[in-house]
Design a protein around this nucleic acid. Structure first.
Length: 235
DNA sequence: ATCCAGGTAG
DNA sequence: CTACCCGGAT
């Protein structure tokens, strides 16, 4: 899979290190992972600042909160009632099992399973936490990563649709490729590409930093010829 | 003024 | 499948 190395190097060269995850501490990263679910980072960021202002960017503090008191603070992140409950549930759970260090002491697969058992933590959030907060080399196969890797021609069409299949394929293909920082940077670069150029509709192929090695070649007209081969996943 | 993108739970 | 919800884009 030489294309992966080529893509990684190309994006790093063009875009520079993305500096993800933007958090001071592992606990802050975990809070951010919940808040950014289904919402642009910008919105989650405002909620994080509210929590910081209230001294609640720590799991032990969040663990003793009531969701109802949290909701107004995380309003800007959307789904605020749901997310307030998720934050409390996750903070309580992690605190109860001995905190982030205890989680980080587990093998990646066990930490992931542990997290998946918590209300509000699905596959993507679990992987993000395992990679960025626990420092394990796992791939976050989110919508951006799947779309970009799929279009570029690295991730086979059949694996693009679901999170689980994409993750499984990528974890095998990328096995041993790097440490947590490598995976984290790769994911961050893919998000940057997916957000600014490789958009769901009206992709900006001509200016895309990955154009040189993209299977879509120079087809800027993508969307105009009846919506590429990959229309969003559900099948 | 409407549309939309995004992940998880039910 | 729909509910949850925001802010940003159109």
């Amino acid at each position: 899979m030489p294309e992966v190395e080529a893509l990684y190097a190309l994006l790093l060269d063009r875009l520079g290190p993305q500096g993800w995850w933007p958090a001071e501490t592992a606990e802050e990263m975990i809070v951010g992972a919940v808040l950014t679910q289904a919402v642009a980072w910008h919105n989650a960021c405002r909620a994080i600042m509210e929590l910081r202002r209230a001294g609640l960017l720590r799991l032990d503090a969040l663990a003793v909160c009531d969701a109802s008191q949290l909701a107004p603070l995380v309003r800007s992140a959307g789904y605020f009632n749901v997310k307030a409950r998720k934050l409390v549930a996750l903070a309580r759970h992690i605190t109860a099992v001995g905190g982030v260090p205890a989680l980080a002491a587990l093998p990646a697969a066990e930490a992931r399973a542990e997290l998946l058992g918590v209300y509000g933590v699905g596959p993507e959030t679990a992987d993000a936490i395992v990679c960025y907060a626990l420092g394990k080399p796992v791939m976050v196969a989110d919508a951006y990563a799947r779309r970009v890797l799929g279009r570029v021609g690295i991730l086979p069409q059949a694996q693009q649709a679901s999170y689980a299949s994409a993750r499984q394929w990528l974890m095998q293909a990328l096995d041993g490729r790097g440490d947590a920082a490598w995976f984290g940077e790769f994911h961050a670069l893919l998000v940057a590409v997916g957000k600014h150029w490789c958009r769901p509709t009206e992709p900006r192929c001509v200016e895309c930093p990955a154009l040189r090695i993209c299977a879509q070649g120079c087809r800027a007209e993508w969307e105009k010829q009846g919506d590429g081969p990959d229309r969003h996943g559900a099948s």
